[in-house]
Amino acid sequence: MSLEDLNKKQIVSPDGEHFEVDPMNDYFCQDRPEEVKPVNKIVERFYNWARSESLWILGFGTGCGAIEMRPLMTPRFDAYRFGVQWRPTPRQANLLIVSGYLSTKTLKRVIRVYEQMQNPKFVMGLGSCTINGGMYFDSYNTIKRLDYYLPVDVYVAGCMPRPEALLAGFEELKKLIKAGKAEGANEYANKFDWYKKNQKEVIRDWDMPDYNW
């Protein structure tokens, strides 16, 4: 996709019909995200328990840390025991693991994916690259701290963290969710302008809508 694809254009249908397409309005919905307050405290506590016990990870590996996620499915580590499952589509996932270094090119995709996930959504930064750049601290093409671009709930330090560290990270995230502290989606909606400003500073060819539903 490039910037020109987002302009209005005339399209001829297979039947020879001419009509105008405005991709920004017809293909995307650009409405800003809004904060959704939990309705009832007791119900919310029950829901938070369910959310924490059923973490659906988006199967999207951004860097070398994706390698460490595969052993979690194997008999040795078996993250399924803790209700952690992998989903192939952002619509159904509620946990995005940014696994390792994140180049600006991938950051663009990660933002799109994150914004397609639905409201209670959590982000886990994996490896020192997401914390302070790690061994890519002087790279011209990787971001240095993830929390300027996405609201991060848990960081797992290490280069690379072992699968055990990831399991500990899941447990930590569960505690946060149960305590009602993992409100990344609402934070993103509240500080939307700040996040967008940071994202656009780094991504120089911004060729997508401001918010990808």
């Binding site: 059923s54 008999p75 399924y80 499952q85 639905q118 409201n119 539903w213």
Partner: peptide, 24 residues
Amino acid sequence: RRHGIPFYQMYIDLIKTLALRTNI
């Protein structure tokens, strides 16, 4: 040779999907 999910996991998944705050 894994332990796998708890046998009641399907119920938790059901509650969790119902508990999403926004939908498209």
